[in-house]
Design a protein around this nucleic acid. Structure first.
Lengths: 359, 359
DNA sequence: TTGTACGCGTTATCAA
DNA sequence: TTGATAACGCGTACAA
């Protein structure tokens, strides 16, 4: 079904049909019954304008590429929702691609997205990805890029990330406020900047209140990992901690998955959460609220972050902006403590040996 | 950067450039140094062929639409992965759209997908969706459709679904084998066919072994719900069960989210899983393995289901097939019991009042 | 108020 | 070996 088909069937020319169907300005001058007739014919023929041909003619595709590094990471879901919802009322269509954790796939999809002439690009970079130089291709093509979840502002891309330092600070502050002093810290992989930032926040708080962080209780997730292995990592690290028999009454985990792993290890060792040990996570992925106990965590405003990322590309696409000054700007979102059931006030005189004797 | 630009820069015609860059058959006759030269020029200009124009010319888009009804449902992630991985080595590009649980959005995206001339369509219909007549549009357009996760075979669409009856059967069989007799059953919403099928499997097993299903222990999730409310529903139903003080030693939940809700209610009531009550889920969504206790469940082979769905559309797209006979065929996938920690053998003489006295 | 003709970037056909 | 030209389906000046 092409425009020509509709034109032939309705007895008018393609231009008239096009004008009517698009409600173009000129359609003001088209007779009402002509419009009626054309619309009916089009409908009855099941005509759908060819978006490809239209894009070609109009010289813009009305699409925004959304490149996700790992769609199975629960972290992404809310981000995608935020993007989706922001784009929905606009004429822009998000095209979601999943790189399945593989850099080559990422590159290939990037190429395809460029080939499809996306007008903007949102990178959902939840996890590490090696400095992919492929981005320079995009930069050359002058396609506005926004990265969400990871700071890529070194290049010419705008980034939307959570304030990791504030998050780390809030996490330890909460635990401290609950009376915990012997706190095990499960840091993220070395290579991850998020991890470093959170750690800085933790240290800052500790310094402010004079809390001593026992280096033996501060451990680090291995470097090369995919998101799920955050669970494995948290579990293993915690198991080792338990094994070493160091006293601790709380665990500050790198993220929710790590926290889940920690809880599993605790559970396996017969320690209850939160009775015997408090645990705090980071991110607030959707299912953090669904476990028992529900995870107390530092919430990244994922929905809002996705929405902001979408708005940023949208803004950058509009030609009538001098936002170019904002190139590479980092938007820091404020995290928020979500109190649930996995962390509680340290009670005195409980039997568990995991309790601190100090307080 | 267009083909014409490269042609101009390299001093050859667009045809030659096109032939060389596509490694078309004719390129066998092009001088090696010409190829070299053209390739270098193209590369250095950062030329990316315009997929839209190419599609227009070739009369096929090499895209497959993937319409997800709710991308935030963990159920979808593995399905998407399966689709993704199957399509990756082919020239077909999956275009993922998320309807965000809203029928209007579903319809709009369906239209856009048709407009973009997708050559096939995969419906990831995890949750209920009202008989959307919009599908008839697609049927008119002769685009092959495959539905995964939900049986839509009434129409001309091939469906890939798990054998729900076998799953229900396996679930109760497992619980029964563990010694449980007083089993609470959290059935899915009335309107959902999956639920009915699973229930049939349960009844069949019960009849075979002469197990009496206490009607008071068989409850049903409310009808209008989005996926997360499966959690709410499971929690509420279980809380009511506990409240009514009926003895039961195991819960057979409609799906994993429902199971999570049940566990939460049990947890809130001070009953431990699996010590005081066993729980079995359905689906094996990614995080069923990450809770403590990890959920024993009936696994849907989601990855394989996604892969099969993708292969089905791929097959249907190939013109040289007489698969049309397979229109509307349902592919039943076999579920599999995954034993983890939320269900265990009923031990005799435990203190909990929730135990069955019979066995 | 409606029709004609051209261009968007590619590929395919045919000629040279 | 390479180049000109006609589609592909659509929007839009421009003409009528």
């Amino acid at each position: 079904m092409t425009l020509a088909d509709v034109a032939r069937a309705s007895g008018f020319s393609t231009s008239t049909v096009s004008i009517v169907l698009n409600e173009a300005p000129l359609s003001r001058y088209v007779a009402a019954k002509t419009k009626e007739h054309i619309r009916k014919k089009a409908d009855q023929l099941g005509y759908h304008p060819d978006a490809l041909a239209r894009s070609l003619s109009l010289r813009h595709s009305h699409t925004i590429g959304v490149l996700v590094f790992d769609i199975s990471d629960p972290f992404c879901m809310s981000l995608l929702r935020g993007i989706e919802r922001t784009l929905y009322p606009t004429p822009y269509l998000p095209i979601i691609m999943d790189a399945d954790n593989r850099p080559e796939q990422f590159e290939r999809y990037l190429d395809m997205l460029i080939g499809r002439r996306v007008e903007g690009l949102i990178l959902v970079a939840n996890w590490l990805f090696a400095e992919i130089d492929t981005l320079s291709k995009i930069e050359k093509n002058k396609i506005p890029i926004t990265s969400v979840g990871r700071d890529l502002s070194v290049r010419s891309v705008r980034s939307v990330v959570v304030d990791n330092e504030a998050g780390g600070y809030a996490a330890i502050q909460h635990l401290y406020g609950l009376g915990h002093r012997k706190i095990a810290i499960l840091r993220g992989p070395q290579a991850m900047e998020d991890s470093l930032r959170r750690w800085r926040g933790i240290q800052r708080f500790a310094a402010e209140v004079g809390l001593q962080l026992d280096p033996r209780l501060t451990v680090q997730l291995p470097s090369l990992m995919d998101p799920v292995s955050g669970f494995e990592g948290g579990m293993q690290l915690t198991a080792e901690l338990v094994e070493r028999n160091l006293p601790f009454s709380a665990i500050l985990a790198f993220d929710d998955l790590t926290a889940l792993g920690a809880i599993r290890a605790l559970w396996a060792a017969g320690r209850r959460v939160p009775e015997d040990c408090s645990v705090i996570g980071f991110d607030d992925v959707p299912h953090a609220a669904l476990t028992s106990p529900a995870i107390t965590t530092i919430r990244q405003p994922l929905l809002e972050m996705g929405a902001l990322a979408a708005r940023l590309v949208l803004d950058a696409i509009k030609p009538s902006r001098r936002d170019s000054a904002q190139q590479g700007f980092v938007h820091l979102m404020q995290p928020e403590l979500v109190q649930r059931d996995s962390a509680r006030r340290l009670t005195i005189g409980r039997t568990s040996k995991s309790l601190s004797r100090k307080s």
